[in-house]
């Protein structure tokens, strides 16, 4: 899929692409973090705002679409190996490891499960090193046995 990126000086960035159904979708990411989602009518030169998201709402949508999809794709992968499961665990506000490093959790030693990625907002840290810091709100993508994944969840959820 070809996503065109257009700078809107002073406003932000506009992304646009044509969906498989033939609709033109435009997203204006403003400087302040808010996002306009626009749809084209008949005029290829114009697009009307369908809805506007605040920065927080946009983050929520990104999370909805982002993290589960990564976990889903991993789930497809792990289906190949019996007994292996992928799960995602959110680092809670009161997690004892929020603000500490991944190594501090000693998750691999204690649960046998591996943390293979950290989803932080729009960024994904793939194969994080032990010195990678964890923050409240991070989503950890965990691979292991179902017990192992649950144990990691107990560990970092807080």
């Amino acid at each position: 899929m070809d996503v065109a990126e257009v700078l809107l000086p002073g406003v932000g960035v506009r992304y646009e692409f044509v969906t498989e159904a033939g609709d033109r979708l435009r997203i204006v990411a403003r400087r302040d973090g808010s996002v306009d989602v626009l749809g084209g009518g008949g005029d290829p030169d114009a697009a009307a705002t369908l809805f506007t998201l605040t920065a927080q709402e946009a983050d929520t949508v990104a999370e909805l679409l982002g993290a589960p999809r990564i976990a889903e794709r991993l789930a497809d992968l792990t289906r190949e190996i019996p007994g292996l499961e992928a799960g995602q665990v959110t680092v809670g506000d009161r997690s004892p490891y929020a603000g500490r490093t991944l190594g501090d959790t000693r998750a691999r030693t204690r649960t046998g499960a591996s943390i293979v990625a950290i989803v932080r907002g729009r960024d994904v840290v793939a194969a994080p090193a032990p010195n990678q810091p964890l923050y409240a709100g991070d989503v950890l993508v965990v691979i292991g046995t179902s017990d192992g994944v649950a144990a990691v969840a107990d560990l970092v959820r807080g």
């Binding site: 257009v6 700078l7 809107l8 000086p9 002073g10 406003v11 506009r14 435009r26 204006v28 306009d36 626009l38 084209g40 290829p44 030169d45 114009a46 697009a47 009307a48 705002t49």
Partner: peptide
């Protein structure tokens, strides 16, 4: 006027910049 999604808008903003 809800013109941020329009094709001409980057041109307008560029001229202003």
């Amino acid at each position: 006027l809800d013109r941020l999604g329009n094709r001409e808008t980057p041109a307008v903003l560029s001229v202003l910049v």
